[in-house]
């Protein structure tokens, strides 16, 4: 277990010579740059620098510019859409208001027309009723006159008949009275 972990921990590490006597000027060695490492470090840094300078920074700038342009375009589009929507809304508001006025006018007109029609109908109905009434009373009058005329004619006929009968039979008083009574009875039967 320990040796495994050791190997993992120091995978890259070369075992340093142990118990080598410490050199006289050990400290200063740590402080002085090692030429190989200095060269490797400078080369590595210069490669990084050129990569950053020629590729990374322009790439990021391009990305940011593209993002900025897109956001600006979207913002402007949204702004335009908003203006359009507002004008549309105004139009619709106007239209709605116009429609309302129109509807009110139509209703008013309809009401006036309705009133008129109602008045017409009432007047016509009244006139008709008047007409019917007068015609009915005319008819009644005519009927009455006709009946009266008929009655008169019949009375005359009866009178003539009675007269004939009176003339026809020699009549005594009794008979006369009887005759007259019968006559009257007949008359009553007619009526």
């Amino acid at each position: 277990m320990l040796s495994m972990l050791t190997q993992v921990l120091f995978l890259f590490a070369e075992p340093a010579p142990i118990s080598e006597p410490a050199t006289e000027e050990g400290g200063i060695q740590l402080l002085l740059p090692h030429p190989d490492e200095l060269i490797a470090g400078l080369i590595a840094f210069i490669i990084i620098f050129f990569f950053v300078w020629k590729w990374a920074v322009p790439a990021l700038n391009k990305t940011l510019e593209a993002r900025q342009a897109k956001i600006r375009a979207e913002y402007e589009a949204a702004e335009a859409a908003k203006v359009e929507a507002e004008s549309l809304l105004g139009d619709y508001r106007e239209q709605v208001a116009g429609a309302q006025d129109e509807a009110t006018a139509i209703v008013d007109e309809a009401r006036v027309a309705g009133e008129q029609v109602k008045a017409d109908i009432v007047a016509r109905a009244e006139a008709e009723a008047e007409q019917i009434k007068s015609r009915a009373s005319d008819e009644i009058e005519g009927e009455r006159e006709r009946v009266a005329g008929e009655l008169r004619r019949e009375v005359a006929d009866l009178s003539i008949t009675v007269a004939e009968k009176v003339v026809e039979a020699n009549l005594d008083d009794d008979m006369q009275r009887q005759l007259v009574d019968r006559y009257i009875d007949e008359l009553g039967g007619v009526h």
Partner: peptide, 16 residues
């Protein structure tokens, strides 16, 4: 697995 700062070498720190 690395456990060694390369900047602890004067070559890197001093060079930069």
């Amino acid at each position: 697995l690395i456990n060694f700062p390369i900047t602890s070498r004067m070559a890197i720190a001093g060079g930069l």
